[in-house]
Computed example of a mutant assay.
Amino acid sequence: MHRTGGLVVDCGTRRVLADGRQLELTCLEFELIAHLAAHPDRVYTRQHLMELVWQQRPLGDMRTVDAHIARLRRKLGPGHRALIRTVRQVGYAFDPSPVTEA
Rank of each mutant, 00 (worst) to 15 (best):
L36P: 05
R81Q: 15
F30I: 02
T13G: 07
F94C: 04
G60Q: 09
V87H: 11
H48Y: 12
R42W: 04
D10G: 00
E51I: 04
A93V: 07
Q22E: 15
Y44H: 10
R46W: 02
V99G: 11
D19E: 14
P58S: 15
R57I: 11
L76S: 10
A93D: 05
D10P: 08
L72R: 01
V53Y: 04
M1F: 10
D19C: 03
L83E: 01
H2F: 08
R85F: 10
P78G: 14
L23E: 11
V8M: 09
K75P: 12
R63P: 03
R42E: 14
T100E: 14
Y44W: 14
L36D: 00
R3C: 09
A82S: 15
R81D: 12
R85Y: 12
E101P: 05
A38M: 03
G5L: 07
A70T: 15
Q89T: 02
L49T: 00
R74I: 15
R42T: 11
A67S: 03
Q89N: 10
A93Y: 08
L52N: 09
R57E: 15
H2Y: 06
P78Q: 12
F94N: 01
Q47H: 13
D41R: 12
I33P: 01
E31V: 06
G5V: 03
A102G: 14
D61I: 01
E29R: 07
V43T: 11
V99Q: 13
T86V: 15
H68I: 00
R85Q: 15
G5T: 08
A34S: 15
P58L: 14
W54D: 09
G12Q: 03
T26W: 04
G20E: 01
I84G: 01
L83F: 07
D10C: 08
D41M: 10
Q56H: 05
D66Y: 04
P98L: 13
P96T: 00
D10E: 10
L59H: 11
A67E: 04
A102I: 01
T4L: 11
H48A: 15
Y92K: 05
L72K: 07
V87Y: 07
I33Y: 02
D66P: 00
G77Q: 10
D66M: 01
A82I: 02
H2E: 09
G5W: 03
H48G: 01
F30G: 09
L36G: 01
K75N: 08
G20N: 04
P96N: 05
A34L: 02
H2R: 05
E101Y: 07
A37S: 15
L28T: 11
P40E: 12
L36T: 04
H39L: 06
I84Y: 09
D10R: 06
R74P: 06
R14M: 06
F30N: 06
L76P: 07
H39T: 06
M62Y: 03
Q56K: 13
L23F: 10
H48E: 15
I69H: 07
R14E: 14
H80A: 12
V90D: 01
T64W: 00
L59E: 12
L25A: 08
G12P: 11
E31D: 14
E29N: 11
